[in-house]
Design a binder for these strands. Structure first.
Lengths: 210, 210
DNA sequence: TATTATATTAACCACATGGTTAAACCAAAT
DNA sequence: ATTTGGTTTAACCATGTGGTTAATATAATA
């Protein structure tokens, strides 16, 4: 009598997490309704507490998943043989497209970045440091080497990465801003993102490549 | 019998708005408690409804104020005789310092940018377009001219501004991210911001100035 | 002073929400 | 067939929350 769970078990848990992610992203932690999550997963509300014991715990689980996905995307990219030129050319595209495909992840991350930095710190740290300290993190070490080789103009690898991520993420956050100012609704997302990617790559390469 | 209000009237309203701004910033719209706002303004909860009729309306008022302040800061800066070099050198500093001084404003703006873009669009539009359409907005016109004069490398004034704002705002959002990854708590904000400003100015000038 | 319009409060209310419970359900093991 | 242990549900519950109300206080006017 060990792991012979009902076939529905896993499915259910997964369905809950999906629905929770959507709800939390749409309304933020406080605005999210357990009832709505249950409805979204087409199960009884009590199941949420059966599997996750509390709203807070459910949220933490979702948050952890979000950061795993977001940093996973970065990690997957880094693994290859990288040059600064390649990083600055490809990363924005990959990241902006990833963001555009998973707006919920960004919403949750940014919300917590702003309202519960301690939460974020904990979740991020756990994921990023999975056996790797920041001083020996391959990407950061790589960036430092690039600088000492005179290939890039930004000495601090953290600021180097922040510049890239800032410009990429803001493509998403800034869209409504652009729409508001210009008074024009961006009808064609593809066009908008293509243009945004071009602009970001341009400023990054000119700005940080030597 | 026209404007002979009690002296406390204005004070009270102002106190409410201040407290509301704080509470909304700290907990987001859904998480904010009317009771807490009242306590923060040291008045009875009923006063909130007396002056602002509903939570939603109070929020709108706060939001409007937030955007006025944020865009006011930009407007104040633009009014002088600008060169692209000066803009890219001074704007990040002014903006990042403004943001650091008023984190609540950023929290509210970013929250709405992400969760209620329609809200933002409305509020922003009302403020930005106050008699000025985006096609004739002095700053955007200026940027366009710079491009046709070959002074900058970004043709679209909206993307030009987005790049600047993205890097500036992210200084604030990204701080906890840096802390999480590096595992080091930023003890000295002044040092952090100084370094951030330098990095942003560097990438902007190298990246968009010809 | 009496009147009038606004400002302020304590007590209240309807309702939504996170969380619980007790009972039923269902598949596998004996 | 019966037991066993995880799974699922309908019905509840305590509490918190946005919003109301009726009564009172306050200042300006006439």
């Amino acid at each position: 009598m060990v792991g012979y769970m009902k076939k529905n078990n896993l499915e259910t848990k997964e369905r809950i997490l999906l629905a929770a992610q959507k709800e939390f992203a749409a309304r933020g932690y406080a605005g999210a309704r357990m009832e709505a999550i249950a409805r979204g997963a087409t199960i009884n509300k009590a199941m949420l507490f059966y599997y996750f014991s509390s709203k807070d715990n459910l949220y933490r689980t979702v948050l952890f998943g979000v950061f795993s996905e977001i940093f996973g995307e970065i990690g997957r990219f880094v693994s290859r043989q990288l040059t600064p030129g390649l990083l600055l050319e490809k990363f924005p595209e990959i990241y902006i497209r990833f963001i555009a495909r998973h707006p919920d992840l960004v919403r949750i991350m940014v919300f917590d970045l702003i309202h519960n930095p301690e939460n974020v710190t904990a979740a991020m740290a756990e994921i990023v440091h999975e056996k790797i300290s920041y001083k020996t993190h391959p990407l950061l070490v790589l960036i430092k080497r690039w600088y000492s080789q005179g290939l890039i103009s930004e000495a601090d690898p953290l600021h180097f990465m922040m510049n890239i991520i800032a410009l990429s993420i803001f493509s998403f956050v800034g869209k409504p801003m652009v729409e508001a100012i210009s008074g024009i609704t961006v009808e064609n997302n593809e066009d908008f993102y293509r243009k945004r990617i071009a602009s970001v790559v341009n400023i990054l390469q000119r700005g940080m490549l030597k």
